[in-house]
Design a protein around this nucleic acid. Structure first.
Lengths: 145, 145
DNA sequence: TCATTTGCGACTGAATCGGTCTGATATAGG
DNA sequence: CCTATATCAGACCGATTCAGTCGCAAATGA
């Protein structure tokens, strides 16, 4: 329906973990997985996807692991989610090569596109450093109705 | 990943259609389905769910069909979507009877809850009348980071 | 050299989703 | 009253997606 995948969830957990252990040692997939009681194999897969999108950098070999590739304030929730699940599109019609059956007859396509943009804007406003801080300053997001 | 179901999509199409044919005759599921090239059976199912949530009212019998139960400006996208797909929760952790494995160890739960609220707020700001109008005045939505 | 750790693709079982079918009930009109 | 037209409800099925696993290759530090 309208949920993020568990993998995306785990991705956010992992990135936040790395943000909190910044400038310390590199964290291995096993270490992170055990800390949160998640399957090691699955966490490894998630971190690999994050590495492929240059959100984290990997260090091979013994005592290796992952480090954040950028500052926590430069990594948005959208970055992490779309690195793992692919582009965020609330309807299949919205895509460029969209093969929506109702095609051009579809009267909700344009309004939904605007809703989609608003959601993207929310997700890209929230950064990892936001998610680590305690204070929560409200931010205004513009919504084209 | 993060998409609305086709049923929810069809629901929005149907409700918008009813809004545009307001104060005329009741529209049958067949009529709406054919107009947008959607399966009749499926459209019927969608409209039944909308009727159960009192978003539309059904008129049985010959020349029956559906009518909007409220003014288009009082029906939000969130109403329609959650009538069909159930409550909008971006993670399974967020729910009240949440059985998230990582449980209380999960460090992203609270930030995601706030993101979820922002999305709900976006979806409940957009009404059916918004989706029918041509003009698009921007609205500001508050986002707790 | 060897233990550790990432990288990648293939695979499986379970859950969800799109869509269909059947039968029951309600109602307008002849 | 009878029939055609609609909604209503739930069971059902095939296809897709998703969570999670496994095996093997490559990199790297000790």
């Amino acid at each position: 329906m309208f949920k993020l995948s568990k993998k995306a969830d785990y991705g956010l957990i992992a990135v936040k973990h790395l943000a909190m252990h910044r400038d310390q040692h590199a964290c291995s997939a096993t270490e992170i997985a055990e800390e949160y009681g998640i399957s090691t194999m699955l966490m490894a897969k998630v971190l690999q996807k994050l590495a492929r999108q240059r959100i984290v950098t990997a260090k091979h070999g013994a005592n290796g692991g992952y480090l954040l590739a950028k500052e926590p304030s430069l990594i948005t929730a959208l970055d992490v989610i779309s690195a793992i699940d692919g582009p965020v599109l609330i309807t299949s019609c919205v895509t460029s090569h969209g093969n929506c059956g109702a095609a051009d007859k579809c009267s909700v396509r344009e309004p939904l596109r605007r809703v989609n943009e608003s959601i993207l804007s929310v997700l890209s406003t929230v950064t990892i450093s936001h998610m680590s801080e305690e204070q929560h300053e409200p931010v205004l997001v513009e919504l084209q109705t």
